[in-house]
Amino acid sequence: MSDASLYIKNANIHMEEKTIENGGVMLEHGKITKIFVEGEKPASYPSRFKIIDGQGMHLLPGFLDGHIHGANGADVMDATEEALDTMASVLPAEGTTSFLATTITQSPENIAKALENVANYKNKDGQAEIVGVHLEGPLLSQAKKEPSL
């Protein structure tokens, strides 16, 4: 995580229950430490800080992608750490900060490899976080299986 601090000022901050117009957000060591309403400013700044003027911009929480098979040429079914790294490293640029790694219908062996890979994957700073799995097929219950034609 970064040791630098960040202050974003003059942004429209969209929160769960309300929007703060022309507010500010202080981040220290990658964590939000204070939200300022219009007109408020930090009394002091931490050492090593950066100020960003968010005038006319909107500050929103990161998005969770609940169904993503791949990104930037990599796929969950590749079942490699490199594939998950590729996905996790490009997603923040589009606002996605966490995701469910989604499998596709393949052999049980290939699905098991992909699931094991996700289970062993270590999230990395600065990348989108894998928060679970969206498991697709081939089927989850023999009782729900359609009869053969």
Results as ranks from 00 to 15, higher is better:
Gly54Phe: 02
Gly62Thr: 07
Tyr45Arg: 03
Gln127Asn: 14
Phe63Gln: 06
Pro138Thr: 05
Ile13Leu: 14
Glu82Arg: 14
Phe99Lys: 07
Pro92Arg: 09
Asn10Ala: 02
Gly73Arg: 09
Lys50Met: 11
Asp53Phe: 05
Asn117Met: 13
Lys122Ser: 12
Gly66His: 00
Leu6Pro: 01
Thr97Cys: 10
Ser44Asp: 14
Ala11Cys: 11
Lys18Pro: 00
Gly56Met: 08
Asp85Thr: 05
Leu100Ile: 00
Gly95His: 08
Ser98Arg: 12
Gly23Lys: 10
Met57Lys: 15
Asn10Gln: 03
Met15Ala: 02
Gly70Asp: 03
Ala43His: 02
Ala74Cys: 04
Thr105His: 03
Met77Trp: 06
Leu59Gln: 03
Pro138Ala: 09
Met1Asp: 10
Asp85Cys: 04
Ala4Cys: 07
Lys124Asp: 01
Leu91Ile: 08
Met26Trp: 02
Val76Ser: 09
Gly23Cys: 11
Met15Ile: 06
Thr80Ser: 14
Glu40Met: 09
Thr33Glu: 02
Gln55Tyr: 02
Ala11Ser: 13
Leu140Gly: 12
Glu16Ala: 15
Ser89Phe: 03
Ile20Asn: 08
Ser107Cys: 08
Asp53Lys: 03
Ala74His: 03
Leu91Gly: 05
Ala88Glu: 01
Leu149Arg: 12
Gln127Cys: 15
Ala143Thr: 10
Lys9Leu: 06
Glu109Gly: 05
Glu21Thr: 12
Tyr45Asn: 10
Gly95Gln: 05
Pro108Lys: 07
Gly24Trp: 12
Ser107Val: 09
Ile111Thr: 14
Asn72Trp: 02
Ala93Ser: 15
Asp3Ser: 12
Ala143Glu: 13
Met1Phe: 03
Glu129Trp: 00
Asp78Cys: 09
Pro147Asp: 12
Leu115Pro: 11
Glu109Asn: 10
Tyr7Trp: 12
Ile51Cys: 04
Gly30Arg: 05
Ala143Lys: 15
Ser141Phe: 15
Met1Arg: 05
Glu136Pro: 02
Asn72Gly: 04
Ala128Gly: 11
Gln55Met: 07
Asn123Pro: 04
Ile13Trp: 08
Tyr45Gly: 04
Gly56Ala: 04
Gly70Met: 10
Ala74Thr: 07
Glu81Gln: 13
Asn10Val: 03
Leu6Gln: 05
Asp65Tyr: 06
Val76Gln: 10
His134Thr: 01
Leu115Lys: 05
Asn10Asp: 13
Pro138Asn: 07
Glu38Gln: 14
Ser2Leu: 11
Lys50His: 13
Asp125Trp: 01
Asn10Gly: 03
Gly39Cys: 12
Tyr121Ile: 00
